[in-house]
Write a protein that binds this DNA or RNA. Sequence first.
RNA 1: GGCUCGGUGGCAGAGUGGUUAUGCAGCGGAUUGCAAAUCCGUCAACGCCGGUUCGAUUCCGACCCGAGCCUCCA
Length: 458
Amino acid sequence: MPLRLYNTLGGAKEVFEPLVPDAVTMYVCGPTVYNLAHIGNARPVVVFDVLFRLLQTQYGTVTYARNITDVDDKIIAAAKQGDRSIESVTEEYTAKYREDMAALNALPPTLEPHATHHIDAMIELTLTLIEKGHAYESDGHVLFAVESMEDYGKLSGRSLDDMLAGARVEVADYKRYPGDFVLWKPAAAADPGWDSPWGRGRPGWHLECSAMIRALLGETIDIHGGGRDLIFPHHENEIAQSRCAHGGDYVRYWMHNAYLDIDGEKMSKSLDNFRTVRDLLQSYRGEVLRFALLSAHYRSPLNFSAELLDQAQSTLDSLYSTLRSVEDVALDMDVSLDGEPFYAALNDDLNTPEAIAAIHALSHQLHKATEDEKPGLKARMLAAGNLLGILGEDPQEWLQGTTADDAIGAEQIEELIQARQDAKAARDFARADEIRDQLIDSGVVLEDSREGTTWKRG
RNA sequence: GGCUCGGUGGCAGAGUGGUUAUGCAGCGGAUUGCAAAUCCGUCAACGCCGGUUCGAUUCCGACCCGAGCCUCCA
């Protein structure tokens, strides 16, 4: 089944074909480690994690790199503010980032390069750009000369004239042209810096991705992903650096996710309307957050709200209930993904909402299935869940698992259920209902069936 | 101002030139001691105005509204 991806460069869905057959290279812009990741930051992580899983079903080797930006103005500022070392800041937030993303069932990337480990490659890239006449040194800075590139602006669809029309580019007197951007800048004595041909300094924002991609994945990679707001200037400038340094295609498929909105406005650090993943994990399981992020297509804005999360929670509960009802059913090991609606949906530019709809269809069929049909349906449902990174928990544990604020324990619940059974057997329905109401007040829902009474927290 | 992208039923959210998205909520029924869950049925939408077409929510144009980028930001 061919995978089709929407390529920002060109603005259309294209059939995906890796440069090297059976081996895919993918790079996603990772965090600058100076504070906690918010749920908006988690969107690309979850989206590209689904892509990572999907690619692995079709290609023998999938190399997925996600960088850690550990040198940056904001890190320096955070260290100063907290009166602590740069390393202690970056180490703390790198560790927390990994924990938070793991809580969202995101697989670790194949490679997790740190910018500070690749300074040499950045200096080398800068030297090449100077040699080739695309960069110049000025007042201790090295700048990329955007006018030296024929089709600068192609990814974001803007020309140099367009950009100047905005007139909000930083005009600095060391720039030959206002749109030129920094490759290397001088470092203050107290700030982190590395020796370079231009004195002690540090890299500009865009340089690390170009340098690390070349060093780790090669001059041309298949997929480069990130949030929409990175299209310009970040990815545009990466293209400029890499193409001017070593020609060829830098990236074959550019993918950009839309953001999370809060009340119709972008969730962002600068607007201060964000919720951190860590904070949300106090109230919701990671899988609930993940499901919420996947409930809209990645290129559409997604309004983030308590209602969204509550709905994700109840949908997952319902799907896990279905799985619990077939807990004793063996798995058909022979299922094929080909032709599966959820698989077709994901292969169509990661249409996760449609894939979720297909899971609902499987769940629905499972309720009505004959015993013969159940092993196959269950296997298909779990396979779909696995690609989306959901439904992997034990259903019973999912439905009955305790969270921090649950007042009543499983043992006590079982005792009350037995007491209710006894009351029912004695046809004392008033007493039976009383017990059920008591459990509802404790957040426990009972479900009677011929086989007996099951319960879940809800 | 320049460049993008959107406006789908009560809500969330897919998709399509001509028969169902899906989920939640609602309504009717089955089931149940009563519920819950499940099953069956059901209501309801395509911003506005033109154009193309036998036929447009889907294509084209104008308009209105919204969001984003152009400055750190997923």
